[in-house]
Design a binder for these strands. Structure first.
Lengths: 252, 252
DNA sequence: AGGCGCTTGTGAAGGCGTGCACAAATCGCG
DNA sequence: CGCGATTTGTGCACGCCTTCACAAGCGCCT
C-alpha cells in the first residue's frame, strides 16, 4: 500500500544503466518498499555466507517469492549472473545506491513523549545509516534534556535549525493535534520527507512525501483477522497448539 | 500492500447483511486496511459535527478518494442514505463490529527495551480499545519492574500466562535475534496474531497473521524518494520554501 | 403531488502487481 | 570443444484495486 503518493512526472531514458548520475528508471512503488527488506537480508547473509547468492536463497531470506525478487532486481539493471546468482557485495552497493543510502541524510525528530524517546534511542536508525541530528519538543520542561547525547530544543527553533542543518527528513512523534502545525513548519524549512507517527492525516504540498505509521491501526487490522478467524469456528485443524518449532513456509 | 497473508478459504453467502453472527463478506485486504482510518476520522468528526456525513466529507477527513470510500463501505452493507449521507453513529458501530473492536482482545508485549517501554505506555492502544495485559522480557534485571501499573514478567512465563489470560495478540519488540523464538512460544500458546517490530522475517503457521512494522524501512523508503527528487534538479517550482500554511489537497 | 437537487451504490474500464513458465546465458566438466 | 546443469531475466495471463461515470434512491420545496 503506497501511502500518500504524488504525481512524479519522470520520463527518463528507459534502457540506460544507472551509471553514477541521476536518471532513474522509475521503479514500481511496490518494488521500492521491498528493496530495504532485500538489503537487510543481504547484510545478514553477507556476514557469514558465500559472496554470491541465488534469487531463491535471497527470496527465502527476505520472505518473498523468488520470481518477484528477480523482477524487482531486474528493474534496477542486470546485476546477476545466470547460472550463478547475484554478487552479494555488488548487489548491496547497488541497492544502497538506488535507495540513496550512500548519502547521509539528516533526520530530525519532533515530539519527545514516550514514543519520541524510544525513537531517539532506537538502534535501528543508526545501524541503517540514518542519523538523528536534532530533537524538538514544545514542552519547555523537556527542553535542554540530553537524550543520546543530543539536547532537546524548543520547537520554535525547528524552522531555523532545519534550514541550518539541511535536514531532509522529519519524524513527527507528537500528539495528533500538534502534528499538522509541525508538518507545516517542516515543509517551510525545506524538509521534503516526513515520517508521521501521529494518528492523523497530514496536508502537505505535492513535492513532499509522507509516510505514516499508526500503531493502533496495525492492531485494528489484526483484530479484524481475529474476528474473522473466530467466526469460522467449525474448521479442521483448529486451535490445538502446534508442536514446537516453525514448520511453515513464509507465505507470499 | 498486504503483509504476510495466508490462504483464507472463506466461501460465505454473499448478500447477507452482518446480522450479529459470523458469516463474513470477505472484504478486500485493501479495504480492511482503510477501515481503521475511517473509524478514526469518524470519531474526530463525531465529537463536534452533525450526526450525518457525506462520503465526500468523510473521504476528505480520512485522506482518500470519495469513490474509494463509498466502495469500501458498500462492501460491508448499505449503511448510507442517498441524498443525505452516512449516519455517523451507525457507521461507527458497524465498522467497530466488522473490525471486532466490540470485543476486548487481550494483548501482550514482549521486549521492554526502548521501543517496548514506549509501546507499553502508548496512549493510542488504550484509547482505541486495546489493553495490554502482560509484559515480558528476557532480562532478569527488568523483571519485576512496574510499567503503567503492570509488572514485567520473565519470558519463560510467557507460554503459561498467554494461555491463562487467553491472549490473542502478541506484540514483539525484541531484538531481531530473539524474535523468532518469541514468535514460536506465542504460537504454541495459541496466539494467532502477531505485530512484529523486530527487523526480521518471522516463520509462523498459516493460521497465524503477522504484521510487521520496521521503522528503518520507512526511513529508507523516504530516502529513496529524496534521492529521486534530488536527481531531478532542473525542474520548475523547485525548492524555494513555500509560504506558510498548507495549500495542497491530500493526494490519493 | 410532482419535480429538483443531492448523494449513495455500482457497472465497467484501466492500471498495477503477482506469479508462472520458459528462453537466454553462464559455468563446469568430460 | 561441446554438452548439461543451473539460474537469471522476462513475456504473458490473471486477479486485485482504483477510478470514472452514471443510474437509482431519498428528501425537500413548491
Amino acid at each position: 500500500m503506497s501511502q500518500q503518493r504524488h504525481g512524479v512526472t519522470p520520463g527518463n531514458a528507459p534502457g540506460d544503466r544507472a551509471g553514477a548520475v541521476p536518471a532513474f528508471p522509475d521503479l514500481p512503488e511496490a518494488t521500492i518498499a521491498r528493496l530495504p527488506e532485500y538489503l537487510r537480508a543481504l547484510h545478514n547473509l553477507g556476514d557469514a555466507a558465500a559472496d554470491t547468492i541465488s534469487s531463491e536463497g535471497l527470496a527465502a531470506a527476505a520472505g518473498v517469492n523468488s520470481a518477484k525478487l528477480r523482477k524487482d532486481l531486474s528493474h534496477l539493471g542486470s546485476y546477476g549472473t545466470r547460472g550463478v546468482g547475484y554478487d552479494v557485495t555488488l548487489l548491496i552497493e547497488q541497492i544502497e545506491y538506488v535507495l540513496g543510502l550512500d548519502q547521509r541524510r539528516a533526520v530530525c525528530l519532533v515530539g519527545l513523549g514516550n514514543l519520541g524517546h524510544a525513537l531517539a534511542g532506537y538502534d535501528g536508525f543508526a545501524s541503517r545509516g540514518f542519523k538523528i541530528v536534532a530533537l524538538f519538543d514544545a514542552d519547555a520542561s523537556k527542553v535542554g534534556e540530553l537524550i543520546q547525547g543530543l539536547e532537546v530544543r524548543h520547537i520554535e527553533d525547528l524552522g531555523r535549525v532545519a534550514v541550518e542543518e539541511n535536514i531532509a527528513i522529519g519524524v513527527i512523534a507528537t500528539p495528533a493535534l500538534a502534528a499538522q502545525a509541525v508538518a507545516d513548519v517542516l515543509v517551510d524549512a525545506g524538509v521534503t520527507s516526513i515520517l508521521n507517527f501521529a494518528p492523523c492525516v497530514l496536508s502537505v504540498p505535492a513535492n513532499v512525501d509522507v509516510r505514516k505509521v499508526d500503531l493502533a491501526i496495525e492492531l485494528q487490522i489484526l483484530s479484524f483477522h481475529e474476528h474473522r478467524k473466530a467466526s469460522l469456528t467449525a474448521l479442521p485443524g483448529g486451535r490445538s497448539a502446534a508442536s514446537a518449532g516453525n514448520q511453515e513456509a513464509v507465505g507470499s
